[in-house]
């Protein structure tokens, strides 16, 4: 059989058709499907942003109501100020109430001689506790961070 005959036979073999699912995946040009995907993502992100904004708004509203409620008690139920006279409560920033650091561990890494003096290089593990308080409400946050530091100190013999 000549090469040409064989090539003709091979050309007669048709590649298997695309599976239906792949056909549908490739039916639209990539830009269109990507644009559709981008639209979906944008809609999702804007929906999430709206939800977060709503939650924040609700939190601010609840906290301001708590404050105006306590003010109302001090004023008295019969002497409520007119709506335009009511105090506008803006949320105050968070304040750091307490900050502690505690040495957890110290590990000697190396003793090195430099400039005629002995130096001790050690690794220290610290725990930093920070208590943050939101002034307008009862919320508080306690953050703990473990950090490591390499410390270099002159070595003194007594």
């Amino acid at each position: 059989m000549k090469d040409q005959d064989l090539e003709t036979l091979l050309h007669q073999l048709k590649p298997a058709p695309l599976p239906d699912d792949l056909q549908s995946r490739l039916s639209a040009e990539p830009g269109r499907s990507m644009r559709a995907r981008k639209r979906k993502i944008t809609a999702l992100v804007s929906g999430l942003a709206a939800a977060v904004a709503g939650m924040l708004g609700l939190m601010i509203l609840v906290s301001s109501r708590t404050r105006t409620g306590s003010d109302a008690v001090s004023v008295g139920a019969g002497q409520l100020p007119a709506p335009d006279e009511r105090k506008v409560v803006t949320p105050r920033p968070v304040s750091v109430v307490k900050k502690d650091s505690m040495l957890l561990n110290s590990r000697l890494l190396e003793i090195r001689e430099y400039d005629g003096e002995l130096w001790e290089i050690s690794e220290e593990e610290w725990r930093d506790d920070t208590l943050v308080l939101y002034s307008a409400g009862p919320s508080q946050l306690n953050a703990t961070v473990i950090r490591r530091e390499v410390v270099c100190a002159p070595l003194n013999f007594q």
């Binding site: 590649p15 298997a16 695309l18 792949l22």
Partner: peptide
């Protein structure tokens, strides 16, 4: 796509 996809897929 109609013209080429089958050879690409092959």
């Amino acid at each position: 796509i109609k013209e080429n996809s089958e050879s690409f897929f092959l």
